[in-house]
């Protein structure tokens, strides 16, 4: 190899190395934070779910015992994991379709050419960014379970009976779901509006020419055309409902900061097992993995569905 080519190549590899170093320098600040504060805890969470550890003694590998403990205890008096799983799933199963229906309905109303459309949209969106802690307090006061509450006041005036909102199981679900819909409706409405904007107008015209009624046009044109938006909204809602915490905590935890069997949810159980001095890290991590499994299942469905939508 003659001298000039060699130096050239050396210079070339040095240049390549320099280029890579520059690239790494761009990534480093964010990646360092991400690796330390996200990746490492994620790996620890998986490992801890197979261990017994209280933070002071040496951690002990116990295989699946944490998981077995969770599921074998379901139904026993001391068990709160079972109720948490049930409440989380019921809340998800009810709030997701209801929020979808309300958001889509609102989007349809606000997709038509009406005066003040932007004004209505703006107002519908605001609850989504309003601080949950502040606005949930209002709901809590409106639904005060004795005769003083506004909702009970109305009920009493209209029908003569009142509801113990925070102790009746259905009252608890009702409050949590109503609040979630009110809070999140505007956000999903915006996604639906974006979907509705993409619907081909000619499809409506030809459907109308064929004599399709408004309802038929909605079912056979709108719904299939916005199926991608529908799908995204559903996935996001399910994942966010599995992760719910502040809604239940804020509406139902009293001054003792505790959620009982009727109001507990998965994230609260993780919190209660692993934080605030209850150092049952193995149990907390096992519940974490159950939550993760639920979210992962939905995400996998999402990937499959996305492929179906993009292949169409």
């Amino acid at each position: 190899m003659d001298q000039p080519t060699k130096t050239k190549r050396l210079a070339g590899s040095r240049l390549a190395r320099h280029k890579s170093l520059v690239a790494y320098s761009f990534i480093l600040p964010n990646y360092l934070g991400f690796a330390v504060f996200t990746l490492i805890p994620v790996v620890c969470s998986v490992l801890l779910s197979f261990m017994k550890w209280n933070g002071s003694a040496a951690p002990e590998w116990i295989g699946l015992d944490n998981y077995i403990g969770l599921f074998a205890n379901i139904g026993k008096l001391s068990d709160s994991f079972g109720p948490a799983l049930r409440n989380t799933i019921v809340y998800t199963a009810l709030s997701v379709p209801l929020t979808m229906a309300c958001s889509l309905g609102l989007a349809l109303l606000l997709n038509s050419q009406i005066r003040g459309r932007d004004f209505f949209r703006t107002i519908a969106f605001f609850p989504y960014i309003a601080s949950l802690i502040a606005v949930s307090t209002v709901f809590k006061l409106l639904f005060i379970p004795n005769d003083n509450g506004l909702i009970n006041g109305i009920l009493k005036a209209v029908s003569g009976f009142t509801v113990k909102w925070t102790t009746e199981q259905w009252g608890i679900y009702f409050m949590a779901i109503l609040f979630s819909i009110w809070k999140n409706m505007g956000y999903y409405m915006v996604i639906y509006l974006a979907g509705l904007q993409g619907v081909n107008k000619e499809l409506y015209e030809s459907a109308a020419l064929d004599g399709a009624s408004k309802w038929q046009r909605f079912v056979y044109v709108t719904i299939p055309e916005i199926s991608l938006a529908n799908f995204f909204v559903m996935i996001m809602l399910i994942v966010n409902s599995f992760k719910v915490y502040d809604v239940f905590y804020q509406l139902f935890a009293g001054p003792d900061n505790v959620l009982g069997k009727k109001t507990t949810i998965l994230v609260y159980e993780i919190f209660a097992a692993g934080l605030r001095g209850n150092n049952n890290f193995g149990k907390a991590s096992a519940i974490s993995m159950v939550l993760f499994a639920l979210v992962l299942a939905v995400t996998l469905i999402q990937f499959r569905g996305e492929r179906r939508f993009t292949n169409r």
């Binding site: 990746l39 620890c44 915490y245 993780i270 890290f281 991590s285 993995m289 939550l291 993760f292």
Partner: peptide, 21 residues
């Protein structure tokens, strides 16, 4: 890919080890 792999993991599922750390 490591960024991508973590989107499906809710923060609530690793908040306990994160706090310990």
């Amino acid at each position: 890919l490591t960024y991508f792999a973590t989107i499906a993991i809710p923060w609530q599922a690793y908040m306990v080890p994160q706090f310990i750390m």
